[in-house]
């Protein structure tokens, strides 16, 4: 059963002491790989177009979480930009805000995206192990937003269409 309490290493996506904002879907999963539809092949390309983090896919471990700035996942509607993280076993993304389509795609595929409006790079050490409570909305000791009821419904069902099955 999926849990609202996660523990893992936190990738702090920062540059010059600031969380990186406007990480778009081409930086997350570049359009040259869009023909890939097999989720097990997607992970290796995660962030391979994000300066400073191009080796993310080699270094990431299952259970890792990601912290970023504003407008994470802006750009196209490609589902691969969510699925590449699921492939690697990344368990959650925490960001100050999200591109609207990205947030919808992530929630619909039961991938936790948590908003933390005043997140700062200095709040955490890169790759420190932290606890994320998605029920109360706490990352480490800092306040984040909790999952909405809708997000929990889909998260526990394992996806949007899996949730539809529970409605019968």
């Amino acid at each position: 059963m999926a849990s609202l309490h996660l523990k893992g290493r936190l990738w702090v996506l920062q540059r010059d002491g600031e969380l990186i904002s406007d990480i778009d879907t081409d930086m997350i999963f570049h359009n040259q790989y869009l023909a890939i539809t097999d989720i097990s092949k997607m992970g290796q390309y995660s962030f391979d177009n994000l300066n400073g983090f191009k080796d993310f896919a080699q270094l990431a471990k299952p259970g890792d979480m990601i912290l970023a700035g504003d407008n994470f996942g802006s750009g196209s509607s490609r589902q691969q930009a969510v699925d590449c993280f699921r492939c690697l076993g990344v368990t959650a993304i925490i960001a100050r805000s999200y591109g609207a389509i990205y947030k919808r795609n992530a929630i619909n595929s039961a991938f936790p995206v948590i908003t933390m409006q005043d997140a700062k790079a200095s709040d955490f050490k890169h790759l420190e192990v932290v606890v994320l409570d998605m029920d109360k909305g706490i990352l480490g000791e800092k306040k984040a937003e909790s999952m909405s009821g809708v997000q929990k419904d889909i998260f526990f069902a394992g996806g949007l269409f899996e949730y539809a099955e529970t409605l019968k």
Binding site: S77, I101, R104, L160, F161
Partner: peptide, 8 residues
């Protein structure tokens, strides 16, 4: 809405 939400 997108095709996934519409199908849902």
């Amino acid at each position: 809405m997108g095709d996934v939400d519409t199908a849902f």
